[in-house]
Structure formats: C-alpha cells, structure tokens
C-alpha cells in the first residue's frame, strides 16, 4: 500500500481534480502577475466548457488590458472598438439569437467611453451577458484615473488623489443598470479568494443560464485588483481591495432573476 502513495501514483489522470480548462488556449496570459483577469477568463471558459457551449459561443473583447482576450479564449471572438462591445454584441445576438453571446469589459471601457452603449443594451434587455471587471483604474494605458477610481485615490492622471469636487465620484454603474427593467440578473463578485472564486463561478453559471432561458441581460461585475496600477504586490492589492474597494463596491447580488 505504501507504493500507492508516491507522487507519481497520485498524479494520474484519473485522480485529477482541477486543471486549467482546455478552453483556455495554451498561450501565456499577457496580464501582470496576480491580476484577476486571468481568473475571470478561466471561470467563464470553465462554465462554457461545463455547459458544452463552445460551438454556440461568440464573445466580444473590449479595449483595455483584456483587448487580447481572444488570444486566450478558445472560442469565436470579435474585438470591439473602445466601449462599443454591448452594441457589437447586440448586432450579433439580434442576428444569431440562438448563440450564446457575451462581452468582457473593463471599467474604462464599460463605464466611461461605453456608458451609452452599456445602458442602452441593458435598457433594451438584450439577451446577452456582460462580464465587467472593475479595478478602478486604466491598466493598459499605464494607470490613469477611471470612472470607478475611488475618492482620493492616486493615479497617473490624479497624481494628488481623485478630488471628487473637480473629478467626480466613482460611478456605481452596476447599481444604475440594476434599476433598468431590461436587466434580469445583476451581481457584484470578486475572484481574490477561493470562496469568492466559487461564488463568482456560480454567478457566471446563473448569468449564462438566464441567457439560455431568454430572460434578458445578465450583468456580472467582478471587482478586481490592479497591483501594477495601484503600485502594490498582488497580495497587498487584494488586501487593499477588501479594505477600500469593497466599501464603495459591496459584493453580492443586486438583482436576482425572477423564477
């Protein structure tokens, strides 16, 4: 019996309990170490794999850090202009209503330049899913202020901190779109702990199911870190996120689908 417990004997295919889904391409992610984007990507792909939707899925990539999302997700994808992903997804879903259509967007893309497209896709109740990763900063362009940047938070374009008097307040777009009758499921999650990862995956499953059931627009916000932009280590950034982001962007379901 001792021999069965060697590393080699345990690491057999039949004992595998978790590994990267094959719907993630072999390409190394372009994200910074510890960035939540990778986990968010993986969870969406795990759900698509488990629900056997690969051949039915068309995804829309944004402009921002995840502009190259199509390099990592083994599904048909379209890359949208900055902020226009919900309009692009509208075009796809209206013409291919039986496909599973989602957008993957960051806070600058979704809540600044694309606010109009976001709100109107939600208001029309487009039967799509929007996965919204909010890290309160423009990561790809080098850490500028985002619509969701916290008050007094320092960024490259608010170097003395976001002065809400002149620069405005963090935009709670998720609460805003929850008020619209076109949305059916609106939730805010995170991916920084194992428990939160599990909850986020459940939220993604629910969002996908809502679309399959033609219930309207599902919106999953994932509050995430940007350790490079925030100038912290990944572990520090997750702690900072809990202490500073979550009070402004509290986790949990904001609107649950009707049965």
């Amino acid at each position: 019996m001792e021999e069965e417990l060697t590393r080699e004997s345990i690491c057999q295919q039949e004992n595998l309990v978790y590994s990267r889904t094959p719907l993630m391409t072999p390409k190394a992610l372009s994200y910074c170490p510890g960035c939540g984007h990778g986990t968010a990507h993986r969870l969406i792909m795990e759900v698509i794999e488990e629900m056997n939707l690969q051949s039915q899925t068309i995804g829309v990539a944004p402009v921002g850090c995840s502009v190259l999302a199509y390099d990592f997700l083994d599904i048909d994808m379209q890359q949208a202009a900055h902020g226009r992903a919900p309009a692009v997804a509208t075009g796809i879903k209206r013409l291919l209503p039986d496909k599973f259509v989602f957008t993957y967007q960051g806070d600058g893309d979704l809540a600044a330049i694309g606010t109009g497209e976001t709100i109107h896709a939600c208001n029309r109740g487009e039967n799509i899913c929007i996965f919204f990763v909010n890290n309160g900063i423009y990561g790809m362009t080098g850490g500028q202020m985002a619509p969701t940047t916290l008050p007094n938070m320092k960024t490259a374009t608010s170097p003395y901190g976001r002065d809400v008097v002149s620069m405005g307040y963090p935009l709670k777009i998720t609460e805003m779109i929850a008020m619209l009758p076109g949305t059916c499921f609106v939730t805010r999650q995170s991916v920084h702990t194992p428990a939160n990862v599990r909850k986020t995956k459940k939220a993604i499953q629910k969002a996908v199911q809502c679309q399959l059931d033609k219930k309207g627009l599902s919106f999953v916000e994932i509050v995430s870190n940007c350790n490079s932009g925030w100038k912290m280590t990944p572990l520090e950034s997750n702690k900072w996120m809990e202490e500073n982001m979550f009070p402004v962007f509290p986790l949990g379901d904001i609107k649950v689908p009707k049965p």
Binding site: A87, V88, T90, G91, E117
Partner: peptide, 8 residues
C-alpha cells in the same frame, strides 16, 4: 458597431 457585430 451593431453593424460591425452582425457583419462579423
């Protein structure tokens, strides 16, 4: 951009 999505 809706045209873009449909055309694609």
């Amino acid at each position: 951009h809706m045209v873009y999505g449909g055309a694609a």
